[in-house]
């Protein structure tokens, strides 16, 4: 039983690493977060209900660790935090206009969002978790998921394109509708 869960955790590692990278914006920090997540999960295996999604449970643990850490650092006014914020909002940060964005640019934009929005962006846009599952993982109503995520996406879009949303070129009519 324990062995089987461990195998499944190992199989989950690529996705957990991707999720953690979206949250932390840094490969090393991401791997530390993944390691902490796995260790905490294994220490509390009794809290996982067999038959429920192991993925969702692990995402929940990862985001809890990350949010705790994030809040802790903010509350203490860690000077490193300020340096990092300055770096993130640096001079060239908003100059991304190419259609293909680098991972660095994307993670930088995510890092500027409030923590509760970052979590949703990582879960839904990066990991492809449904709204319903995200609401379930975070223990919040689905309406909150949608309003938070929608605000996050508009800020991200503005940061990534550096054009005010209203001035953007209209996208083409959805392909699937053309022949209807």
């Amino acid at each position: 039983m324990v062995d089987e869960i461990q195998s499944r955790m190992i199989q989950l590692l690529p996705r957990l690493r991707r999720f953690a990278l979206a949250l932390t914006g840094d490969k090393d920090k991401a791997d530390y977060l993944v390691q902490d997540t796995c260790e905490r999960a294994l220490a509390h295996l009794d809290q996982w209900k067999p038959g429920t999604s192991l993925d969702s449970w692990m995402y929940r643990i990862a985001q809890n660790i990350w949010v705790d850490h994030h809040r802790g650092r903010r509350a203490q006014g860690d000077p490193r935090q300020l340096d990092e914020v300055e770096n993130l909002v640096g001079v060239d940060g908003r100059a991304v206009t190419e259609s293909r964005l680098t991972l660095a640019a994307v993670t930088e934009s995510i890092a500027r969002l409030p923590a509760d929005q970052q979590v949703l962006v990582a879960m839904v846009c990066v990991e492809g978790v449904s709204y319903k599952e995200a609401a379930n993982i975070l223990g919040i109503p689905i309406g909150t998921v949608m309003s938070r995520l929608s605000r996050a996406r508009q800020s991200l879009y503005a940061a990534l394109t550096d054009i005010p949303v209203a001035a953007a070129v209209p996208p083409p009519i959805p392909v699937s509708s053309r022949e209807r």
Binding site: L101, R153, Q154, L156, Y157, V169
Partner: peptide
């Protein structure tokens, strides 16, 4: 609609 389509595609 554009910001939502774009962010999803770019992030993925």
């Amino acid at each position: 609609l554009a910001p939502f389509v774009e962010t999803r595609a770019q992030l993925a």
